[in-house]
Amino acid sequence: MDALKQELKSKIIEVLNLEDIAVEDINDNDALFGDGLGLDSIDALELIVLLDKDYGIKLTDPKEGKNIFQSIDTMAAYITANRTK
């Protein structure tokens, strides 16, 4: 699980082009949206594509995203439970 969390952090930094942010700067339970990392709705779309492309998870209900993308912890837990690749 820890390896997956590290992997997710690097992928998020790369995909969302988070300049000046390193893997160490993101805590596992930091909020990704709002006050935490400050991601927005366009980033949410990028994360949905990331889940599909890299882990074979298709989010059919956009409302699910709110819970899944709360933090690295919630993302990693959801990926572990649902990944198809």
Partner: peptide
Amino acid sequence: NDEQFLTPT
């Protein structure tokens, strides 16, 4: 990506 996984940015 074979016309899939298109990101918006």
